[in-house]
Amino acid sequence: MSWNRLRRKTVNAAMLMLTAFCTLFAAGTLLFILGYLFVHGARSLSWDFFTKLPAPVGESGGGMANAILGSAKLLLLAMAFGVPLGFLGGVYLAEFGGPGFSFAVRYTADLLNGVPSIVMGIFVFTLVVLKQHHFSTLAGGVALGIMTIPIAIRSSEEFLRAVPPALREGAMALGASKAQAIWTVVIPAAKAGIITGIMLNLARVAGETAPLLFTALSNRFWSPGWNQPTASLPVMIFNYSVAPYEDWHQQAWSAGFVLLSLILAVNILARLILSKKGAALR
């Protein structure tokens, strides 16, 4: 074996090792995060966490029941107002749109998706909070709702496009109007994909903190109705982890554990469904 050949083989093996190390580092980080959160979060997790209000400063115990309910309400609002807009926009792109305007919508959706979440918070603050003169669940829900639109548009378009044109033609050949064909044939055919897309979308905004800081603010008590500031799990994690109390840090770990478990469970479930459908969603 010549020296040159030996050198090339060595470089080949060395780079294989090096890139494998990069990959292991990235994957290892996730496993480490999971492991660490599991150990620290699960240890201090108790039934109180799910049923009690936060304890006053200085008292130990207490839970985050109000933050869990608050997060649920915020997500409900986001789903009620952002997801339908995005979904119908996706229907337009897949079924009606012409090339020019559709490109503009797609490109803007991608740009909107890249807007830093803190800037989205400022936007909703000026749009809702300044007009209402107070922080509210509603404002937080609007912020999260706007954040769901770009992904809802792109994922529903992708899944509607995956429906074979023959189905549309078949429905129209039977006398259905285009709208009937979309409503009764195309959307049901893409249903599983669209629903998984929505689940992933909600899982993503469930962990968003920055847009809530000055829209939903936070609250140490229950937040009845939609017009008062509300606690949410991500904001509680932030507030508790930067506070100087050891007890609060434990609570932050528990909240992080609960939040991450929910998000990862939805992600894993959605990816399993998608891989069965043979479609790819990024």
């Binding site: 994957a27 996730l30 496993l31 995060i33 991500p234 939040l259 991450l260 990862l264 894993i268």
Partner: peptide
Amino acid sequence: LIELLAAVPSVIIGL
């Protein structure tokens, strides 16, 4: 695994 890492909220990475 790496795509799951993208789903971890930033507040948890901060924690």
